[in-house]
Amino acid sequence: MQGRTAGNSFTVMNELVLPNDTNSFGNLMGGRLMYWMDIAAALAAMKHSNTPSMTASVDNISFKNPIKLGNIVHIEAKVTRSFNTSMEIHLKVWGEDSVHQYQYESNEAYFTFVALDPNGKPRPVPPIIPETEEEIKLYEGALRRRQLRLILAGKMKPDDANELKALFNK
């Protein structure tokens, strides 16, 4: 299977925060943001794998700054690394206050998606070819993040996580 560049999966999604999207403080609800992030990640995964894909896991999502009513949400998603049938997608989120004309960082996260065949079974995905310095850094860290996810899910023993252990045994 021929590899694809990380840039080929790059997806940008924009949403306007409307009253129905906010909590009683006038901030975008976290669940609505995660919903939009899941859509952006799914689009990036489908662009890379050229097949429908589903969410397998979501890493920690930390909210750095709230996004206010009337502001614009910018979501960028890109596949950082693919494994056999799964893909790690990195997402960055910004808010934009168009009245005062400034952007601010809201959060970032990693989602894992699995590519599916027509029968809903996992199917192989193309390898990622990182090109930029940032893509290479994300690619190299993806194996450690994957090992941590597998340990936390009980699917890998900590002693088997060689890439992750290497961080502590220098």
Score class of each variant (00 low, 15 high):
89 I>L: 09
71 N>L: 00
49 S>T: 03
90 H>W: 07
56 A>K: 00
158 P>E: 10
124 P>R: 08
140 E>N: 14
128 I>G: 05
132 T>K: 04
94 W>G: 02
59 D>E: 15
138 L>D: 07
43 L>C: 00
103 Q>N: 08
82 S>H: 11
40 A>G: 05
69 L>Y: 07
59 D>S: 10
120 G>H: 02
149 R>E: 01
130 P>G: 05
155 K>W: 00
84 N>K: 14
22 T>A: 06
143 L>N: 05
134 E>H: 08
138 L>M: 06
118 P>K: 10
78 K>M: 14
73 V>I: 14
164 L>E: 12
46 M>D: 09
68 K>R: 15
5 T>Y: 03
125 V>W: 03
68 K>Y: 13
43 L>W: 05
38 D>K: 03
143 L>A: 03
35 Y>S: 14
163 E>N: 11
137 K>V: 09
119 N>F: 11
15 E>T: 11
50 N>L: 13
33 L>I: 08
21 D>R: 10
142 A>C: 07
36 W>Y: 07
97 D>R: 02
93 V>H: 02
152 L>R: 11
130 P>N: 04
71 N>H: 15
58 V>C: 06
83 F>I: 09
44 A>D: 06
130 P>R: 01
103 Q>P: 00
90 H>T: 03
53 S>G: 01
67 I>P: 00
3 G>Q: 11
26 G>V: 04
91 L>S: 06
54 M>Q: 06
95 G>H: 02
170 K>I: 01
134 E>Q: 12
119 N>I: 05
65 N>T: 15
42 A>I: 10
94 W>R: 07
9 S>W: 10
93 V>N: 01
35 Y>T: 12
115 A>G: 13
60 N>T: 15
21 D>C: 10
79 V>S: 07
50 N>V: 03
107 N>R: 00
138 L>F: 08
65 N>H: 14
118 P>F: 12
161 A>P: 04
63 F>S: 05
37 M>H: 05
93 V>C: 09
6 A>G: 11
126 P>Y: 06
56 A>Y: 00
80 T>S: 15
91 L>I: 15
168 F>W: 13
129 I>F: 00
37 M>R: 07
79 V>E: 13
62 S>W: 05
11 T>S: 12
124 P>W: 06
27 N>F: 11
6 A>I: 06
121 K>E: 00
3 G>M: 11
14 N>M: 06
78 K>C: 06
124 P>D: 10
141 G>K: 08
3 G>C: 12
3 G>Y: 10
41 A>E: 02
11 T>E: 12
135 E>F: 04
65 N>Q: 15
81 R>T: 13
157 K>N: 15
118 P>H: 04
112 T>K: 04
141 G>E: 15
164 L>T: 09
132 T>N: 04
29 M>S: 07
131 E>P: 14
156 M>A: 01
80 T>Q: 10
162 N>L: 15
166 A>D: 07
32 R>G: 01
48 H>Q: 14
84 N>Y: 06
168 F>A: 12
14 N>I: 05
159 D>C: 09
102 Y>V: 09
1 M>Y: 02
34 M>D: 01
47 K>C: 01
11 T>H: 13
137 K>I: 06
135 E>I: 05
29 M>H: 08
20 N>C: 13
3 G>T: 12
100 H>Y: 13
